[in-house]
């Protein structure tokens, strides 16, 4: 059986909020390393991979592989019943038809308990190869969100060009064109506001802004985001957490 207690409901709330619009129904794969998820969006253009490592829970117990097929809108409704500072305990049997959630508030001794019905979800699991990316760009999450939001006003797609000097996001649309360039720099006082580019060769790829804007719903998970690019492979957008990650993969636009 699964028993996993997380100290702060807000962590789980933010993770689900980050992915629910992209993948409304998905399997949470639980085993002794933690709770993982991999799912493609309906159009098969983007893929979400999430991991909450076992050491982010206390206690964590899961002796065999358990798949929890969950509708994330249902889970969101139940998580709204938890306060951010509540502890959440997740419980499920070995062959579960429901997931049990207990919210505990130690301050006012309030305990609430919910069960969500599970679904059978037939999900294709993709093998994601370990990739040495040509460019990895780490930038403030809020900056990436702003760039995506700004450029999406002008165009459906954005070209991301990484060079030694920095990264340039540019777009063109019916009303005109626009670009934002971030030069590599280090903020000593606030390292999370730095922009860093690790580059083995320059890259220039085009992506759908609609998806990137959607990925930015994960902005509350981390102060920085890493974009990893190589020519002709999907973009990796990674939000790291203390005990896990949310990764989004997005297929590039291709000239035909």
């Amino acid at each position: 059986m699964l028993e996993a207690r997380i100290e702060q409901a807000s962590v789980l709330k933010r993770v689900i909020e980050a992915i629910k619009d992209l993948v409304p129904d998905c399997n949470f794969d639980c085993n002794d390393t933690g709770i993982a998820l991999q799912a493609m969006d309906n159009s098969h253009v983007a893929l979400v991979a999430m991991l909450l490592r076992a050491d982010g829970f206390s206690p964590y117990r899961c002796d065999r592989n358990i798949a929890l097929g969950i509708n994330l809108n249902s889970l969101t409704k139940v998580l709204r019943c938890a306060q951010n500072e509540d502890m959440i305990t997740l419980k499920a049997d070995d062959a579960p038809d429901s997931l049990n959630l207990v919210f505990e508030n130690t301050e006012n001794e309030r305990i609430s308990e919910y069960d969500i019905k599970l679904m059978d979800i037939d999900q294709e699991h993709l093998g994601i190869p370990d990739t040495e990316y040509s460019a990895s760009i780490t930038l403030p999450t809020a900056e990436f969100q702003r760039i995506c939001r700004d450029l999406s006003q002008l165009s459906e797609s954005v070209a991301i060009e990484a060079t030694k000097e920095g990264v340039k996001f540019s777009c063109s649309g019916d009303i005109g064109n626009g670009s934002v360039t971030l030069r590599t720099h280090q903020n000593v006082d606030k390292p999370e506001l730095s922009t860093k580019v690790d580059l083995t060769e320059p890259v220039n790829l085009t992506f759908s802004l609609k998806y990137l804007v959607n990925f930015c719903k994960a902005s509350s998970l981390s102060q920085t985001v890493t974009l990893s690019l190589s020519n002709e492979v999907p973009l990796l957008v990674e939000y790291k957490m203390d005990n896990g990650y949310v990764r989004f993969y997005l297929a590039p636009k291709i000239d035909e």
Binding site: V45, L250, E256
Partner: peptide
Amino acid sequence: KIFQGQIFKFFLEG
């Protein structure tokens, strides 16, 4: 024209 690729093609072939 620019077409969006489908993600699974990259990972199955990759």
